[in-house]
Amino acid sequence: MTADIVATLPVALLAVICGYALFSLFGFGSAILAAPGLTLVMPMVRIVPLLAMLDAGSSSLRAWRGRAAIDTAAIRLLLPCMLAGQVMGVGLLRYLPVRETGLLFGCFVVLLGLSSLRPGAQAQRQGGAWEGIGHGLVGGVLGGMFGSGGFLYARYLQRRLPQQDRFLATQSVMIGISTVWRVALCALSGLIDGGLLMTAIMLAPAVWAGFGIGRLARGRISRQRWGGLLNGLLVVAGLLLVYRHMA
């Protein structure tokens, strides 16, 4: 294990368990809980590729296990839009002021979450093709610019796929492909080394523990309440995006 976390391993383990319990419930959001705790024991430049590796591994395994439940039509719609959006996001990162753009995107995400929490919104389950294209593109742009766009794929899929197993399997494919691409970029940029790989391996049991806690909690939450919690998390993600770029 590297010196990044050896002195405060319990903090790192607890942060990862909490983050992946959330990921297990909603198919995204590991960084929302894990990153703040991990910042106590390692710099952000190490956290981003670390969580990308953990997300890629866990999402790929979940997608493989739930492959029979994957909605291929949703993947065919979202995936090319997400890839195009990431290219746009990386390009925009070179030309747009990151702080102001992050604030605007954060406010946009908060409004999306609030609109889904309004009375009667949960009844509008089916997401149309144009809605999928918009969520894929904007999610890709957010991923390219800020490394975080999974909550928008989740919002669209939650409206399209009311069955939790289909939602989680399909969301895992989207997150898996996105994070594998991010891992490749981090590796090419020299951000991943042997020490960080060892750290990811040592933290892997905390990922599985978080997934176990998430599975137990998911069995106790009704479908309607689960949808409300997901959209509430969307609001939190937007507020954190605003806070990050105001600080």
Rank of each mutant, 00 (worst) to 15 (best):
G85F: 00
Q86I: 12
V87N: 01
M88Y: 05
M88S: 10
G89C: 05
V90H: 05
V90R: 07
G91T: 02
L92S: 12
L93F: 14
R94A: 11
Y95V: 14
Y95N: 12
L96M: 12
P97R: 02
P97A: 03
P97L: 00
V98E: 11
E100H: 01
E100N: 03
E100G: 03
T101A: 09
G102M: 06
L103M: 12
L104E: 09
F105C: 13
F105K: 05
F105S: 04
G106E: 02
C107G: 06
V110S: 03
V110A: 00
V110W: 02
V110R: 04
L111T: 02
L112I: 09
L112K: 12
L114P: 02
S115C: 09
R118I: 14
R118K: 14
G120Q: 09
Q122W: 12
Q122R: 09
Q124D: 07
R125Q: 09
R125A: 11
R125G: 13
Q126W: 13
Q126E: 11
Q126N: 09
G127I: 01
G127C: 05
G128L: 03
G128P: 05
A129K: 09
A129C: 15
A129W: 11
A129M: 15
A129Q: 10
W130N: 14
W130M: 11
E131Y: 06
I133M: 11
I133Y: 14
G134A: 09
G136P: 06
L137Q: 11
L137K: 15
L137D: 07
V138Q: 05
V138R: 04
V138Y: 01
G139K: 08
V141L: 11
L142K: 04
G143A: 10
G143K: 05
M145E: 04
F146H: 07
G147Y: 00
S148C: 08
S148M: 14
G150N: 06
G150Y: 03
G150D: 12
F151N: 07
F151E: 03
F151Q: 09
L152F: 15
L152K: 07
L152E: 14
A154V: 00
A154F: 05
R155I: 07
R155Q: 10
Y156V: 00
L157W: 03
L157G: 09
L157Q: 02
Q158L: 09
Q158H: 14
R159T: 01
R159E: 03
Q163V: 02
Q164K: 09
Q164N: 09
Q164D: 10
Q164S: 08
D165Q: 12
D165E: 14
R166H: 15
F167I: 01
L168S: 08
A169P: 02
A169Q: 07
T170I: 03
T170W: 01
T170Q: 06
T170L: 06
Q171W: 12
Q171V: 14
S172L: 08
S172I: 05
V173E: 08
V173F: 02
M174L: 13
M174W: 04
M174R: 07
I175W: 11
G176W: 15
G176I: 14
I177E: 01
T179K: 07
T179W: 15
W181M: 12
